[in-house]
Each structure stands twice: as C-alpha cells, then as structure tokens.
C-alpha cells in the first residue's frame, strides 16, 4: 500500500504556497510535495522545511536555481559511493527523474517561511521574563 502525503502537509502547502513562487517554478509544487514525502526528504529537512538542515529562507548556493540544485543532486550521485562525504544522500536520475527534480525544486521554493518575532510568542515571553527572576533553591 502506497502512503499518500499526509493531509496536514497538503494543508500546509495549500495555505502557504505563494503565487509568485508557483509562477516562477517550472515544476509542479504539489507533485514536488509528494516527491519530498516519498523520498523521505522530511527526515532531515522537516515536513515544513525546518529540521536538521533548514530549507526555508536559506542562502544556500545549492538552492539558488534549478540547474544548480539538479547538479547538486546528480553530482553527488555520480561520485557515490566512492565519496559519501556528507550526510546528504545521492540522487542519480535512476532514483529521482529530471521531472521530479523540477517538481521538488518548485516545492522547496514554495515552502512558507515561519519565523515569527519571539516577542509575539507568548510562551517565549513567559520564559524570558521568568528567567530574570532571582534563583531560589526551593
């Protein structure tokens, strides 16, 4: 049984997909979301692009444009397994097609940024305020 992308991810995608990003991307972001899920990209990058390696709002050169992104995936695939030098898996065309790379790139470009001001987050306000209290051993 093939597991479809969870509804929560689709909802996030539908709510957060900037129209400008859709217009600029050559691939299909919704298909890209499924590729992102099927390939387990969320394992390191989170369901929303925040994880061990963030994809949102990064200035990574590997995400600067589609060609570089594809070359990054493919180039790593060309040298594997001789030089598995980083934690990022390799993706030759036999595992992720060019069309899927296009969709994936479109999806990554569409990921909504979510970096609210800490001052607007009530628990953080409480935490920062409480941390100013003098220490009490009891």
């Amino acid at each position: 049984m093939k597991t479809m992308i969870p509804m929560v991810l689709l909802a996030a995608l539908a709510g957060g997909l900037p129209a400008a990003a859709l217009a600029q991307a050559s691939g299909d972001a919704k298909n890209g979301a499924q590729v992102f899920y099927d390939q387990g990209c969320y394992g390191c990058h989170g369901y929303s692009g925040y994880g061990r390696k963030d994809l949102n709002n990064t200035e990574s050169g590997m995400l600067s444009n589609l060609e570089v992104f594809r070359a990054f995936l493919r180039g790593r695939g060309d040298v594997a397994p001789l030089l598995p030098s980083t934690e990022m898996p390799n993706y030759p065309a036999t595992s992720v097609s060019d069309a899927q790379v296009n969709d994936l790139f479109a999806y990554i470009q569409s990921m909504p940024a979510d970096l609210p001001e800490a001052g607007d987050i009530e628990p953080f306000q409480s935490i920062l305020k409480a941390a100013e209290r003098p220490y009490s051993p009891q």
Binding site: A12, G49, Y50, D114, P116, A118, P123, F124, I127
Partner: peptide
C-alpha cells in the same frame, strides 16, 4: 529562542514548541 521559534505555527507541531509550551 531565536532558533526554537522556527516553524512555530506550522503543522505538524515542532518539537521545540512542545518544550516551549510546557515550561511556563
């Protein structure tokens, strides 16, 4: 705090939010 706020409003819930909501 600047690190933990990433993805604060997104679903599924961030693990940082669990700890941040619990502490107060």
């Amino acid at each position: 705090v600047e690190t933990k706020k990433k993805g604060w409003n997104l679903s599924p819930v961030s693990t940082a939010r669990i700890y941040a909501e619990l502490w107060p």
